[in-house]
Amino acid sequence: MPRRQLLEVGEVAALLGRDEPLLLAGDEALLRRLPPGRWIAGTIPYFMTEAGGVVDRERIFVEHLPPGVDCLGIRRYGEEEISRVYADLPEGALAAMIAPCWSRVHLAFALHAPRYPGFATAPLFGWIAGVHLSELGASAPRVFDGSAAEPLSDQAIVMQLSLAPGKVPDLGIVNVFERGDGPTLTFPETGFTAATVAVDGRPEPLVGYLERSGLDTRLPLVADYAGASINVSFQSVDRERGEVRFFAPVFAGVEYQHARPLPDSVRAFASALPTGLGRRVAFSCNCVLNYVNLELEGRRIGDVVGPMTFGEIAYQLLNQTLVYLCISEGD
């Protein structure tokens, strides 16, 4: 059986009956039908499969742990506790984390993760749970603590994982977006919303700038964070309130530029992926905004499969990226 695929609820329940630890993604109604076991999950109906991007509300995406990786335990973290997510990891361990979008724990992690004790000293990977885009504002994203088969809307769920001797983790990020040639944009405050922006140093209302410039909000803002290109994706533009909402926070004083357009998004991803990556991946996820804005329905991205999410986690929160974890033999 493939280690990463969409399965019927009964098939997933059978795997759990054999006490197999699993990372799961699917529609809330399906996840509620699963028995307790060693699993964690998040709600999302969008997936990249071997046949291409799909919306599937009848099956659950299953991630089996690869050989040499086992579940040490499942923990819940609220807004006040999430800062311990790295410090709580046993030596030599790694962790998978799923948080519900728009929850206070999601916001806390997004804003403060790089300042947590032990940040990036061990691989922390995962994603942000979401809903079908037609249900934005009507349905709440949920994560599931499989040990109790319990849905949660205000806590992150973390599966701590052990590595067998000789196994080496490699957590990678594929970002096909680059900073364009437009003006430099800076924001006066850190947060998920912004009303004003400094355009090459000149402050003006952000909604007005977007309308004046004709900026394509399907493409993210891109900044250099300590040598890495990090995206901030647009969520919505509220003209009445004069406010723009993002899927990840903008940080005060950081210089952003609008991303260059992609002539061929699938080719861009394919060329950015390491050769033969799909055969070595233990986990991966991609952003639902890439699914929608880059028109990935029915189109494959190399041979990498996984949920299409409301945010990706590779040490910290990311947007409009592809995140993957490989487990290999050490030297």
Rank of each mutant, 00 (worst) to 15 (best):
N286R: 00
D264H: 13
N293G: 15
L262K: 09
A270F: 00
D264K: 14
A272P: 03
E297D: 08
S265P: 07
V288E: 01
A268W: 01
C285Y: 01
F283T: 01
G306R: 03
P263F: 13
N293A: 15
A270P: 05
D264Q: 13
L262M: 11
F283P: 04
V281I: 12
E295C: 11
N293P: 00
T275Q: 13
T275L: 14
G278I: 10
N290W: 10
V266I: 08
V305T: 15
S265K: 04
R280D: 12
V266K: 02
A259G: 02
N290L: 12
I301A: 02
N290V: 07
A259E: 01
S284H: 09
R299D: 00
L289I: 11
G276I: 13
V288G: 01
S284R: 05
A268E: 04
G302V: 07
R260M: 07
A272D: 06
A272N: 04
G302D: 04
V304A: 02
S265L: 10
R299S: 06
G278M: 09
S265N: 04
V292Y: 07
G278C: 08
R280Q: 12
C285H: 02
S265I: 01
G306T: 03
P263R: 05
G298V: 08
Y256L: 10
V254G: 02
S271H: 13
L294S: 10
V292S: 03
G276D: 13
P307V: 12
F269H: 00
S271Y: 09
V266H: 00
E295N: 14
V305L: 09
V281E: 02
P307Y: 14
R280I: 07
G306A: 09
E297K: 13
P263Q: 13
R279K: 15
V254H: 04
V281Y: 01
L294Q: 15
D264S: 15
R267C: 02
V304P: 01
F269Y: 15
T275R: 14
G278H: 06
Y291S: 00
A268G: 08
Q257N: 11
L289T: 04
A268V: 09
S284N: 10
R300V: 06
L273C: 03
A268Y: 05
R260G: 00
A272I: 03
D264M: 03
C287A: 13
R260T: 10
V292T: 11
T275I: 11
G278L: 06
Y291L: 12
E297F: 11
N293L: 00
Y256F: 15
C287V: 05
G276R: 03
I301F: 13
P263W: 10
D264A: 14
N293W: 06
V266W: 01
H258T: 07
S271I: 09
G302H: 03
R260C: 07
